[in-house]
Nucleic acid binder design. Sequence first.
RNA 1: CGGGGCGUAGCGCAGCCUGGUAGCGCACCGGCUUUGGGUGCCGGGGGUCGCCGGUUCGAAUCCGGCCGCCCCGACCA
Length: 588
Amino acid sequence: MTRLSQLLLPTERQPPADAEAVSHQLMVRAGLVRQMGAGLWSWLPAGWRVHQKVVAIVREEMERIGAQEVLMPVLQPAELWKRTGRYDAIQGELFRLKDRKDADMVLAMTHEEAMTSHVAQIVRSYRDLPFSLFQFQVKERDEPRPRAGVLRTREFVMKDAYTFDRDEAGLQEHYERYREAYARVYDRSGLRWYEVESDTGMMGGKRAHEYMAPCAAGEDDVVLAGPDGASYSANVEVASADAQPIALPPAGETPVTIETPGTTTIAALAEHLDRPAGSLLKAFPVVVTPAPATVKGEVPAAKPRLVLVLLRGDHEVVEIKLEKALGGTVRQASEQEIRDRIGPPGFLGPIGSDVPVLLDAAAEATTEANDGGGWVVGANVVDQHLDGVVPGRDFAYEIADVRAVVAGDTVDGQPVTIEPAIEVGNIFQLMTRYSEPLGATFLDEEGKEQPIVMGSYGIGPARIAAAAVEQFHDEQGISWPKAIAPFDIEVVALGKQGTDEQLAAAKVYDELTAAGFDVLLDDRNGGAGQKLTDAELLGCPLRITVGKRSLAEGRVEAQIRRGQETIEGGLALDGLADAVRELWERIP
RNA sequence: CGGGGCGUAGCGCAGCCUGGUAGCGCACCGGCUUUGGGUGCCGGGGGUCGCCGGUUCGAAUCCGGCCGCCCCGACCA
């Protein structure tokens, strides 16, 4: 029996002063979670019910596709992580510690090492494959900046799953099955969501998708084309689209020097020349440090090198795309490096220096679309630029798509929009990134040793809960999707304990519970205002109010939380369970 | 890691500049009152003023160091 008078549900009238995100404010105010430290959160009973409901949905969908549930330690020997190279590759985010024997240990931020090393010991033959494992286990990440309540924390439960296949075809099959399972998970949980192409990041591997729930507190920007991203959707980190056209003035035989005193920014230059920023080439000098060896035995690459990135003045670089294109980590060049190798900052250009040039694909596409047109670039001389510069003719370059898509660009002719969203899950094709260093191999039909081909698949239940709050709330509080609400129905008993309303409400509670609903009964002695306000804050999908007014007619009141729709005339006590069941069908 | 801000009761805040033994609202406890949208009145409990050190007759207040938390950026499976 869940009586509010017995439930630890510390609702607050005011949100914590430091809570910025709506979900942060509401989840604390509604008594679902409490903070212990930066990025460290405790789940109180009602909040944990939400979390568990999400977990139950995920578990069902994992089992539906044949994945087997396991549980592996969070505290792990560092040795495993050294073998995959991540011990050195991951800088601050990995918690490291020593045990009493002074052995290096880590707190796992994900479980590729653990899963793979076990599987390496167990699997011998192609006959043992394929299969897939999953768990709900805590992950520890020393986040540089935890934020937004439960959205980005240092410790959180994750459903992580791993697939083990004989070859890439098997992985693809598994991958598709997971995509379907994920779609079901997010549909069932009641979120607005979409699947986008993503960067593979520290996981390594080949292909990856992220599952994004659009919301104001989102940390990622997602590029979408078509209705709700139907025809294109990708994280801006990897998105690519056709830039909006821009006209370039005809170029002469050779570049012409123009005086541009004091115009060190694109904006100033555009104004000075009275030309659109998109017709100017922005110079972005960077230093590339080749990626460190992530696998034992990999040959360390060359020394850091300077590269001049050129892109349209109305575009920005995406560091991740740049790093991919250049094959290493990238930082902006220092002023000294720029002066030594290229020219005076503010007037940089590709002509007159020996620094290799990387031209953004959108700039090249613009050049082609303006046959015979020329750009303005820095002259590498103070207060001078060059006009009528033609890439290829006037300077050599390599080409890559390294710019950020902006709203209004097009994909297959369709304009894109950009929305903030929170990542609620992801899937990666790891290939042999972990099986090789950890020796997870099998003998194929020919008796030849092969590395297992892997995939990894994560879901953050806490983020699903918080994203739901972000997406579904109003002035009064949360309005949960019914699949993950802490309770299906809150029965509010008006009047003091022992009154007719309270007795009738208890009966309503029993009847609805017997009918299979999760019911919360507010049997407190408080005033009507307090109870109704708290109910709206907590946000159960359906509220049944038992007061003496309607009770006199043998009825109770009903309100659907989403949209605060009051059911005309309420519901008759006689046959209440059936009426509620019917009503339940149309609640989101 | 860079920039900014904040630590005083469970939550939200004042007091600090100008040093004199800590206060308000909500919540909580007791009594009465009220009973369909946080009712009103009376009485009450609760705080190492983040921590350490210094200055001073005296420090929440001034000075130094440290710790914690939040926001922006960098970063982020």
